[in-house]
Structures are given as structure tokens and as C-alpha cells.
């Protein structure tokens, strides 16, 4: 923790944000009233399927679009009316990178630096994202991962206090992804605030202090990854449908499902259920191939929400009903 640590305030505040595209019969409400807070030194992941409204919401925080209703504050300022001040302290990464194809990596980065009030040296940024060896390569010849890293180098060039990343690691190979994750963690350690969207559950679990799951324009769950998982049953899985009677009667078990030759036991008490299951299997001399036991993960929360996608107008109420 260095002296660059910022005061402990909320860097991003979103209240009752709504965003409607079009008018009249063609109007589509992409964001249906969301609240979100990102405190200094935290990483918040906006998680959701494609079309959940993540990018539409983020564009308002970025100041690229005005909200239809509600309020957005970044560093206590309005991203549209206080644009100059907010932009100087914000780093944005759009979902798709945009650079002139005929510039080299170094030229593109220099161009970006020339628009900033106080950029870091271009060479440092190239090193940080492992692009120094590609400095003289034209943008059109870059791989998807290299292009994304160039984009991120621009995002972080002004040492922004607030970092907004729309699907930062989509299209990256595992090594590049790990590098980006390390960078994002380092930002948090320096007291920066990060709001990112992703549909990679692993990314949200690995990086985020808090996760907000968006579905059909609303935030249907919010909390730490652990909190979100706590509402969901743990699972025991194994191959085959063995002739074990009474799986559903195992202590703690709440549901048993068999699909594609896999048996899944859902339980509120993983240890007790697993202990009973293994005892039962040993007594009857039954093998349980590919046995796995999992605490509830973000994935199970996410899938439960996506599966509840029957009435897009009422997901918030039905989801809240399920939590309580």
C-alpha cells in the first residue's frame, strides 16, 4: 500500500438507473432500474448472460450515454456534465477494441497518450502489458490477445482512479488472461476501483470483491462470491446411476437428479451427506466413478437465475422470493 491510496469513499454510485432504447412501440428497456456502489479499492463484477444489460449500464457510467432515469456519480461527479474532470481520472475498456489498423502499436499508444493530461511513459505501458517486442508491428497484424492488451495499456495509461472494463479478457489465451487478472488485482491493491462486466464465472470468482448478477435489465443478486454461493445447495456428482436405494433420504440431501448418465445430489450440508453416501457405498461395495463434491459456486447461482428466465418482466421478484 503506497501513498497513492485514495480516500475511502464510494467511487461509483448508481441509483435507479434505467436505460431505454427507441420510443413508442419499438422502445426497449435494456436497464430496468439498478443500484450499484463501487467503493475505493474494490473490484465489482457485473455478471450476466449476453443481453442482460451489462454494457448498456456500463455505457452510462462511462458517460457515453445519458440515463433515461436515475442517477450515476463517478468520483462524486456526473460523467456527462463534469466530463473533463471525470475522464481525466477514469480508464475505460470497451467490449471491442478500436485502433486504426495502419498505425503501429507504439504509434497507437502515443496517439492515445497525446490526448491525456498526465500519461505515464509509453515504454512503461508497453512493458507492463508485454508488448515491448511488438512496438513496431501494425495494429492490423496483432493477434486478438495482443490487441486487447494494447487496449488495456491505453486504459491504464493515465493511472486512473476508476477503471471500467467491459469484458476485459474475452478472447484472451489463458496466459494473457492471468496477466490481466494480476493487473486488475494490483489496481485494487493501489486503492483504485474497478467495475468490470464479464460472463466468465471464473473471472468474477477470482477477481471480484462483490458480484452483481444482472438478468433482463435488473440486478437480481448482489454480494460477495461466497455470500451468493451460500444461498445455493452444494452438490455431489458421480458417473452412473448406481443401484443405491434412497439417495434422496441421505441426511441433508434435498434433491437428486440424474442426467446423461450423471447423478447429482443437491445438499444443504455437504459434509454430512457425503459422509453418509460414502458409508453407504462402502457397505454395499458400490464404486462411484468420477466422484466430485462441490460447494455451491457462482455457477450454480448463475444457472439457477438463467433457468428462471420465464417471465422477463418479473425476474427480480421471483429471484428475491427464492433468496428469502
Amino acid at each position: 500500500m503506497k501513498s497513492t491510496l485514495l480516500s475511502d469513499t464510494d467511487h461509483i454510485e448508481v441509483r435507479g438507473l434505467r436505460r431505454v432504447y427507441g420510443t413508442g412501440d419499438k422502445a426497449f428497456e435494456a436497464v430496468r432500474g439498478i443500484d450499484l456502489v463501487v467503493g475505493a479499492g474494490t473490484v465489482v463484477a457485473l455478471l450476466g448472460t449476453n443481453g442482460a444489460g451489462k454494457t448498456s449500464a456500463l455505457e452510462v457510467v462511462e458517460g457515453l450515454a445519458r440515463p433515461t432515469a436515475g442517477e450515476v456519480r463517478v468520483l462524486g461527479l456526473d460523467p456527462v456534465t463534469d466530463r473533463a474532470e471525470v475522464r481525466r481520472r477514469t480508464g475505460v475498456l470497451l467490449q471491442t477494441s478500436g485502433f486504426p489498423a495502419d498505425l503501429t502499436v507504439a504509434e497507437a499508444l502515443r496517439m492515445w497518450a497525446s490526448t491525456m493530461t498526465s500519461p505515464r511513459p509509453v515504454a512503461d505501458a508497453l512493458d507492463e502489458l508485454d508488448l515491448a517486442g511488438r512496438a513496431d508491428v501494425r495494429v492490423r497484424s496483432l493477434s486478438g490477445g495482443e490487441l486487447r492488451r494494447l487496449d488495456l495499456a491505453c486504459t491504464l495509461l493515465g493511472e486512473p482512479d476508476v477503471v471500467l472494463l467491459d469484458e476485459p479478457t474475452t478472447g484472451l489465451d489463458p496466459k494473457s488472461r492471468r496477466r490481466v487478472w494480476d493487473l486488475i488485482s494490483a489496481l485494487r491493491d493501489r486503492g483504485r476501483s474497478v467495475l468490470l462486466t464479464t460472463h466468465h464465472l471464473e473471472e468474477a470468482e477470482e477477481l471480484a470483491d462483490r458480484v452483481a448478477i444482472m438478468h433482463a435489465g435488473r440486478i437480481v443478486r448482489e454480494g460477495t462470491p461466497a455470500q451468493l454461493g451460500a444461498d445455493q445447495p452444494s452438490t455431489i456428482r458421480f458417473h452412473g446411476v448406481p443401484a443405491l436405494v434412497g439417495l434422496g433420504d441421505l441426511p441433508g440431501a434435498i434433491r437428486v437428479a440424474t442426467r446423461s448418465g450423471m447423478t447429482t445430489v443437491h445438499t444443504r450440508d455437504l459434509q454430512t451427506t457425503l459422509h453418509a453416501l460414502l458409508g453407504h457405498a462402502a457397505e454395499t461395495d458400490v464404486r462411484l466413478p468420477n466422484l466430485e463434491a462441490h460447494n455451491a459456486s457462482l455457477e450454480s447461482v448463475f444457472l439457477a437465475i438463467a433457468a428462471g428466465d420465464n417471465d422477463p418482466d418479473e425476474p427480480a421478484t421471483s429471484m428475491e422470493g427464492a433468496t428469502r
Binding site: L64, R87, R88, V92, L94, G98, T115, M116, C154
Partner: peptide, 20 residues
């Protein structure tokens, strides 16, 4: 061309103004 390359959208996320 710059609009198709998403360069203009990207620039507008930074400090550059539309007039710039």
C-alpha cells in the same frame, strides 16, 4: 473508416472531445 474501426467510439471514452 475510423468509425468502422471503432476508433471514434474508443476516443470518445477518453479525454478527447467530439470537436477535438
Amino acid at each position: 473508416t475510423r468509425r468502422d474501426e471503432l476508433v471514434l467510439k474508443r476516443l470518445r471514452t477518453g479525454e478527447s472531445t467530439d470537436a477535438d
